[in-house]
Simulated assay, not measured.
Amino acid sequence: MYLLLKRYLTSALLLGSVFALHAAHAAPPQDLKGTNVVLVHGAFADGSSWDRVIPLLEARGLHVVSVQNPLSSLADDTAATRRAIEQQTGPVVLVGHSWGGFVITQAGDDDKVKALVYVAALVPDSGASVNDMMKNQPAPVWAGELRKDSANFLTLSTNAVINDFAQDLPTAQARVLATTQGPWFAGCLDDKVSIAAWHTKPSWFVVADQDRMIDPRAEEAMAREIGATTIHVDSSHVAMLSHPKAVADAIIAAASKGVVTK
């Protein structure tokens, strides 16, 4: 009788542990309602760059805004981003792709901004421009595919978008990106950041390991320089389109750790 009772109690304990473990795994993910995400696109793009990431963020309760940058100057893009931040109630995770890294570095000094997320982005220090960061570096292949109009705005050739900008997307989709790209004013290359928010804000960096627009080794070096939490993705420059879950996870981590724990 004693042995039977002992076996029964042991089985009950084991079953209880299994059920408890199952319940823990079945628990809903943390609701991040009350936290805002402001997404900033880069050159040759627009706010729709984030359309695969936005639903994943909203599913976690985050309020999301995608900025439409005029791409006419660092000052203009920063102003557009600051207006978006101003409209938010509560803490903000500020996310920038490519040239958007310059924009969030400048605009991220706002008190509402609690974390920065760089996605295959350029991360300048105070006083630096794109040309400053690129000097003494060999010109990338895609630079020869730039087209400049009479107003000094730059666009990428369809060939460059397919082969260098978004080479891991279906060709048809890459062609759409080429057709809908946002022209980038050439003067942006010399615009200098006056303040670098990453000095005072926690940062995350998604390194695109197959990036042909920005050298992945440079991305990793920038992430290391700013002390960012780094995530590597086997992606082209447009990681938010080809690997949206990985990018969303990085933003969610920033919202969970960089904002909620403050």
Score class of each variant (00 low, 15 high):
residue 148 K to D: 04
residue 43 A to M: 10
residue 235 S to Q: 01
residue 110 D to P: 02
residue 80 A to R: 13
residue 245 K to M: 04
residue 72 S to M: 15
residue 202 P to E: 10
residue 143 A to G: 02
residue 202 P to T: 07
residue 230 T to N: 02
residue 90 G to Y: 06
residue 19 F to C: 15
residue 89 T to R: 14
residue 168 D to Q: 01
residue 186 A to Y: 14
residue 74 L to G: 11
residue 44 F to R: 00
residue 93 V to G: 04
residue 148 K to G: 07
residue 121 A to G: 03
residue 181 Q to H: 11
residue 40 V to S: 09
residue 148 K to M: 09
residue 146 L to D: 05
residue 2 Y to D: 10
residue 62 L to C: 11
residue 85 I to N: 07
residue 74 L to M: 10
residue 95 V to I: 15
residue 152 N to E: 13
residue 23 A to W: 10
residue 164 D to P: 04
residue 173 Q to N: 14
residue 77 D to A: 06
residue 237 H to D: 03
residue 216 P to N: 01
residue 222 M to W: 00
residue 245 K to P: 05
residue 253 A to T: 06
residue 156 L to R: 05
residue 28 P to W: 12
residue 142 W to E: 03
residue 192 K to N: 06
residue 50 W to I: 10
residue 88 Q to E: 11
residue 98 S to H: 03
residue 152 N to T: 08
residue 141 V to S: 02
residue 15 L to Y: 08
residue 115 A to T: 11
residue 47 G to A: 15
residue 100 G to C: 09
residue 61 G to M: 02
residue 156 L to Y: 02
residue 216 P to F: 04
residue 153 F to W: 05
residue 115 A to Y: 09
residue 193 V to N: 04
residue 205 F to T: 00
residue 204 W to Y: 12
residue 117 V to L: 12
residue 68 Q to K: 12
residue 95 V to C: 08
residue 249 D to A: 05
residue 63 H to C: 03
residue 26 A to L: 08
residue 26 A to E: 08
residue 61 G to K: 01
residue 69 N to S: 13
residue 27 A to H: 08
residue 98 S to R: 02
residue 136 N to G: 07
residue 245 K to Q: 13
residue 181 Q to Y: 07
residue 56 L to D: 15
residue 214 I to A: 00
residue 245 K to V: 05
residue 153 F to T: 06
residue 75 A to W: 02
residue 66 S to Y: 02
residue 233 V to N: 00
residue 41 H to W: 10
residue 175 R to M: 15
residue 155 T to C: 12
residue 215 D to K: 01
residue 223 A to M: 05
residue 50 W to Y: 15
residue 68 Q to R: 14
residue 24 A to T: 14
residue 178 A to Q: 07
residue 167 Q to A: 01
residue 177 L to E: 09
residue 221 A to V: 00
residue 59 A to M: 09
residue 83 R to I: 06
residue 67 V to A: 06
residue 169 L to V: 00
residue 123 V to Q: 00
residue 165 F to G: 00
residue 164 D to I: 04
residue 257 K to F: 09
residue 178 A to K: 12
residue 72 S to F: 14
residue 251 I to R: 06
residue 28 P to H: 09
residue 204 W to R: 12
residue 100 G to E: 04
residue 117 V to I: 14
residue 174 A to H: 03
residue 73 S to E: 12
residue 234 D to A: 00
residue 223 A to V: 04
residue 115 A to Q: 11
residue 122 L to C: 06
residue 13 L to K: 15
residue 179 T to D: 02
residue 142 W to M: 01
residue 135 K to G: 02
residue 11 S to I: 06
residue 8 Y to F: 15
residue 66 S to Q: 08
residue 250 A to Y: 03
residue 67 V to G: 09
residue 18 V to Q: 08
residue 154 L to Q: 03
residue 242 S to P: 05
residue 187 G to H: 07
residue 83 R to Q: 13
residue 209 D to E: 12
residue 34 G to C: 07
residue 205 F to Q: 01
residue 53 V to K: 15
